[in-house]
């Protein structure tokens, strides 16, 4: 019942084919990685990797307390951050329901000379965490009462200031 040499050769040939194609595709994807990335992070923009006056996407977390709404229009200003660098974003229009401070977003638009990102589309980026509202409520209540001083603010919002949430 040992495997026939002919069959073994076919198996090796198939695995070789798979490996070869895998290496080719891997190299192509590696070469194209900058085009595959959906957005530039604030750090990449600070390093000058994002060209000015060209349509591109910027992604990051909305910094707590940075949101400013104009009183007479739908224009909003906020700061997105990857906890290393910050980028100021300006946007006129309706924000998605899940937009809030501390939440990840991806904005499409252009970078001007002052380094402000003028967005014409803002998408909310959801993280991989799900929680019933009662749990969130209980967590923030506990934090308010300082019963659990070790709980960070991020746990109550379900948003982790890690690379995970920024991706």
């Amino acid at each position: 019942m040992a495997m026939h040499p002919k069959r073994r050769n076919k198996l090796i040939l198939i695995l070789g084919l798979l490996l070869g194609v895998g290496v080719i595709v891997g190299l192509v994807l590696y070469a194209l990685s900058q085009n595959i990335n959906l957005f530039f992070s604030p750090t990449e923009m600070a390093q000058g990797k994002a060209p000015a006056h060209q349509r591109l996407r910027a992604g990051g977390m909305v910094r707590e307390g940075s949101l400013v709404r104009a009183s007479d229009s739908l224009t909003v200003q906020f700061v997105i951050t990857d906890f290393a660098e910050d980028v100021k974003v300006e946007y006129t229009g309706i924000l998605p329901d899940l937009f809030r401070e501390g939440q990840g977003i991806v904005a499409q638009g252009k970078l001007n000379d002052e380094g402000v990102f003028l967005a014409d589309e803002v998408l909310a980026k959801h993280d991989e965490k799900y929680m019933p509202p009662e749990v969130t409520q209980a967590l923030s209540d506990a934090q308010a009462a300082s019963l659990v001083p070790t709980l960070s603010k991020d746990q109550t919002t379900g948003v982790e200031p890690s690379n995970e949430a920024l991706k």
Partner: peptide, 18 residues
């Protein structure tokens, strides 16, 4: 594997695996 690890290898709008 490209589908599976796309959310880790590149910046995507899609969240990572729960």
């Amino acid at each position: 594997p490209i589908i599976k690890y796309s959310v880790e290898w590149w910046n995507t709008l899609h969240q990572s695996s729960s």
